[in-house]
Simulated scan of single mutants.
Amino acid sequence: MKFALAASGMDNYPPAMAPWEPKSGSAEILRFAQKADSLTWDWLTIPEHVMMPNDMVQHMGTRFVEGISAAAVLMGATQRIHMMTYILALPYRHPLLLAKQIATMEFIAGGRFTLGTAVGHLEKEFEALNVPFEQRGKITDEYIQVLKQAWTSDTPAFDGEFVKFKDVVIEPKPVQKPHPPIFIGGNSKPAMRRAAQLGDGWIPWLVTAENLPECIQYMKSLPEYQEKADRFEILVTTTAYAQDDHHVAYGETNIAGDRDGVLREIEGLKKAGATSVQVRPPKVETFEQCLEWIEWFDREIIPQFR
């Protein structure tokens, strides 16, 4: 079992935000990452939105970092731990530029990056970036193919609906082979198909231990999944968000922080088929308490599942 730790201080998402986070800044964010790096956590997950529509602020908050620059800074501040965008909306960036950014981080930092991506869901964000919202699925599928072509081919070329190029060289190549892992987010059947067909893992949202087996069974029915079943990651958050698909709360989100509660959550997800979990620290009062908790989790919980 692998463990991803939500990088605190990078968003102010109301359902999960701890009291110390709104006033946090670079000092806390870097110390948090370096503490996780000194332990055995596998990934730090980095949230992202380019902007937040005013009508969504009460549901999602205002602070969201840009995922690639945040990952680059944290990779420079750490030595071992991997970074994962959770989640970068792929249609927002030209795939050649994104491929170059990721390959550059990989080349300098010695790998250590996983692209967590999806089609995106905030229509006003698409409008501001002049990206067609209705075509986001088709764009995402094509962009993933472009990324792989740029990362793996010595003579990269592509002739698609949205991207065309040939007679170019794209270097440096990423350190991880054949390319950095690509985990696909989303709960719909198209998202699960995309993960099985084009991804190396699936990172759903609002999927619980109760409905996870049905989702996995669907992906297993796809021929493309069988080819990668032994290396396909299914990463599920341990936080049971009291939110709908539009981030509107219908209750209070409780994040377990005690040993028995944490163990029950992880054991349930593992039994349901998860190969990895994303963990969000509980809503402790102070930053120092948060550091103590992630160290406690590393000592008391992670060894139970290795």
Rank of each mutant, 00 (worst) to 15 (best):
residue 99 A to H: 09
residue 100 K to E: 07
residue 101 Q to P: 05
residue 101 Q to D: 14
residue 101 Q to N: 02
residue 103 A to C: 00
residue 104 T to M: 05
residue 104 T to F: 02
residue 104 T to Q: 04
residue 105 M to Y: 02
residue 105 M to H: 01
residue 106 E to D: 06
residue 106 E to Y: 00
residue 107 F to E: 05
residue 108 I to S: 00
residue 108 I to C: 00
residue 108 I to M: 04
residue 109 A to W: 12
residue 109 A to D: 09
residue 109 A to P: 06
residue 110 G to I: 02
residue 110 G to W: 03
residue 110 G to V: 09
residue 110 G to D: 05
residue 110 G to C: 07
residue 111 G to T: 01
residue 112 R to F: 01
residue 112 R to Q: 00
residue 112 R to L: 07
residue 113 F to V: 11
residue 114 T to E: 13
residue 114 T to W: 11
residue 115 L to S: 02
residue 115 L to F: 14
residue 115 L to C: 01
residue 116 G to K: 02
residue 116 G to A: 10
residue 117 T to L: 05
residue 117 T to Y: 12
residue 117 T to E: 12
residue 117 T to W: 02
residue 118 A to T: 07
residue 118 A to L: 00
residue 119 V to S: 02
residue 120 G to W: 13
residue 120 G to C: 01
residue 121 H to M: 14
residue 121 H to A: 15
residue 121 H to V: 06
residue 122 L to V: 15
residue 122 L to E: 13
residue 123 E to D: 06
residue 123 E to L: 07
residue 123 E to V: 11
residue 123 E to F: 03
residue 124 K to M: 09
residue 125 E to S: 13
residue 126 F to L: 09
residue 126 F to T: 04
residue 126 F to V: 01
residue 127 E to S: 08
residue 127 E to W: 07
residue 128 A to K: 13
residue 129 L to N: 14
residue 129 L to C: 10
residue 129 L to F: 15
residue 130 N to H: 09
residue 130 N to E: 14
residue 130 N to T: 14
residue 130 N to P: 08
residue 131 V to D: 03
residue 132 P to M: 02
residue 132 P to Y: 06
residue 133 F to I: 12
residue 134 E to Y: 02
residue 134 E to C: 03
residue 134 E to V: 04
residue 134 E to A: 07
residue 134 E to N: 09
residue 136 R to V: 05
residue 137 G to S: 14
residue 137 G to Q: 03
residue 137 G to W: 10
residue 137 G to M: 06
residue 137 G to A: 08
residue 137 G to Y: 09
residue 138 K to S: 15
residue 138 K to C: 06
residue 138 K to H: 07
residue 139 I to K: 05
residue 139 I to E: 01
residue 140 T to Y: 03
residue 140 T to M: 08
residue 141 D to W: 03
residue 141 D to S: 14
residue 141 D to V: 01
residue 141 D to F: 11
residue 142 E to Y: 14
residue 142 E to H: 12
residue 142 E to V: 14
residue 143 Y to D: 15
residue 144 I to D: 02
residue 144 I to G: 03
residue 144 I to P: 08
residue 145 Q to T: 11
residue 145 Q to F: 11
residue 146 V to M: 11
residue 146 V to A: 10
residue 146 V to R: 07
residue 146 V to Q: 11
residue 147 L to Y: 04
residue 147 L to C: 04
residue 147 L to H: 02
residue 147 L to K: 04
residue 148 K to T: 13
residue 148 K to F: 01
residue 148 K to S: 07
residue 149 Q to S: 13
residue 149 Q to G: 09
residue 150 A to L: 14
residue 151 W to R: 13
residue 151 W to Q: 04
residue 151 W to G: 01
residue 151 W to P: 12
residue 151 W to K: 15
residue 153 S to H: 09
residue 153 S to N: 06
residue 154 D to L: 11
residue 154 D to G: 10
residue 154 D to K: 07
residue 154 D to T: 12
residue 156 P to N: 01
residue 156 P to Y: 08
residue 156 P to C: 06
